[in-house]
Nucleic acid binder design. Structure first.
Lengths: 335, 335
DNA sequence: ATGAAAGCGCTAACAC
DNA sequence: GTGTTAGCGCTTTCAT
């Protein structure tokens, strides 16, 4: 404590240089383990730096050596295991490139998403993730920044999008249920947007292909949480106790349904068959283990980062046809 | 496509200025929504910027306005729900400060941890997370950077550490098992380090307080995965089928034990009582729901970031006594 | 409303 | 082995 001043001014390389009685360049050499420097000088510089609490500015450093690429990963809810799995894949792909990933959790809130976009557009080299905002909003707040949308078709040409194609998988799921003798299959769709999800569309089409009717009340909306899935199933069964199987928008909802069915005293799959979507690892932990229309979630994250890499380096983006993750039915125990 | 050159040179504010026929500062004004600028000029600049694909350098910008604080969050495995919950709390605390969080997943690998440290020490304003490396290694690679260790006592004075105090919680757990009549209680400890964990220490002490013997073979090591927990329980029961209850190092291991017990044909808690540690949300999804010595995982992440905030702003770090998260027994169904 | 000059903190290139 | 010069790309005075 040699100085009694209280100003929190930043300690720069200049201060260290003065304190060690050398030039700024020498300080730089010592700190970056360069060869051309005397051992004792180096030690003196290092000591001075430590004494002053010096820490190089990453901005100044980044300015002069254009290295580190940083991408922003935006998810609506990191606690939702689906997004955790995607994030994990994205992190790994980024690490293998030496890239940094700044993670933003928007708490599934449109305002926070906007705030995130505002900040992110100026702070990262590329943006990857889930967004509920319109393409126009995205465009406005990410000027010039490559954007890769996950699980959503980009309307604006500026964006890339990773598409999840679950049509075949859902068809398999419905076929499987039908082969088991189910004729009254309900669905627990999401409730985030007013329109039916594309997954509901696939479900209806597959049902139609089997000549199955889907009564209006057989499709319910569920909040994307375990509790939401449970509540939705309870509502569905209260109104339509004759439904013998349900397909859920995703595994989280399906797991809620599983739990609710148990509380209802229904045996799964004997009394009620349940099939989810996503194929989360979580599905193997519940009892009975969850059958699901599965996608490779980590590959999804990886693919998104790789596409971002292409855009950042100025390479040609992949064709939309190559930015697809396909789902397949994974049969476990719940159906 | 007016130019046919292929060099990927960066588009700078200078290029935009020239293209729009204005000075660099006018470009800056247009891009930053400053007041003193003519509407038509602004539009012209914006158009030029867009046409050139201009994107401001975050380094140059950061250099001149010392704003954005970025912290590095290091976890061994983001797919492990414990770390996800901690990360979620950390992200929220950071967001409320307007900070950015770069997340690194070290894949529980000492080499990757080192590589991460090497990079992180120069790229963030503070480091928060889980590390297996020695304090000396940490010190060497994070010169001058504030470091907050989670779930580990810092030995070096330079670091802050958030301590998890589960002693009372474990004591409650053992007392509860004893009150249920259990006398032969095993433990599934972790297998990351050769020494017994502190949780095992708490367990042994609590058992001793009840006059309970803990035979050497009753304590097994488990990999920190669901499968690891299952395998460990299988081993334990094979050698000591008379054990009637197990305490697990954490919930992930406990859930593996739950699943294994079911496969073994044991009813939980009737034939085997299971208590975990952490109190993860995941514990409510399994059947039976997992009893656990619970900590507030999100508060753990939050506390770590808040302590990092103190260190970054130069405020006095909290006393070690204030950097403690205490665990309490949460009884659900498995015991 | 716009431009010129200065400088943020650092490292690369070239002296000595 | 060490110091000097220049400049990374941007925003901030301060002129005009």
């Amino acid at each position: 404590m040699s100085s009694s001043s209280t100003e929190p001014r930043r300690v720069t390389i200049h201060d260290v240089a003065r304190s060690a009685g050398v030039s700024r360049q020498t300080v730089s050499r010592a700190l970056n383990d360069k060869a051309e420097i005397d051992g004792s000088t180096k030690q003196r510089v290092l000591d001075a730096a430590r004494a002053l609490g010096y820490r190089p500015s990453r901005f100044a450093r980044g300015l002069v050596r254009q290295d580190t690429t940083t991408i922003g990963l935006v998810v609506p809810d990191l606690l939702n295991p689906f997004f955790t799995e995607v994030a994990s894949g994205a992190l790994e792909a980024a690490r293998s490139r030496g890239w940094h990933v700044v993670v933003y959790d928007t708490a599934d809130d449109a305002e926070q998403e906007l705030a995130t976009l505002r900040v992110i557009g100026t702070q990262v080299d590329a943006v990857v993730g889930y967004f509920s905002r319109s393409d126009e909003d995205l465009d406005r707040f990410t000027p010039g920044v490559p954007v890769v949308l996950i699980g959503r078709e980009p309307r604006a040409a500026r964006f890339s999008g990773i598409t999840i194609d679950g049509e075949d998988g859902v068809r398999e799921a419905v076929a499987h249920l039908v082969s088991l003798g189910h004729r009254r299959i309900g669905m627990l769709d999401h409730d985030r947007r007013p329109e039916p999800s594309i997954r509901q569309h696939w479900f209806r089409r597959a049902a139609a292909e089997h000549g199955l009717a889907v009564a209006p009340g057989w499709i319910t909306r569920a909040a994307q949480t375990v509790d939401g899935g449970g509540a939705a199933l309870a509502g569905l069964l209260a109104a339509h106790p004759d439904v013998t199987a349900v397909f859920a928008f995703n595994d989280v909802i399906a797991i809620g349904a599983l739990r609710e069915a148990r509380r209802f005293g229904l045996r799964v799959p004997a009394d009620l068959a349940v099939i989810g979507f996503d194929g989360l690892a979580l599905g193997t932990l519940v009892e009975p283990e969850l059958s699901s229309v599965a996608i490779d979630t980590r590959a999804l994250g990886t693919l998104a980062v790789e596409e971002a890499a292409r855009l950042v380096t100025g390479a040609e983006p992949l064709e939309p046809g190559e930015l697809i993750i396909r789902a397949r039915l994974h049969l476990r125990e719940s159906a």
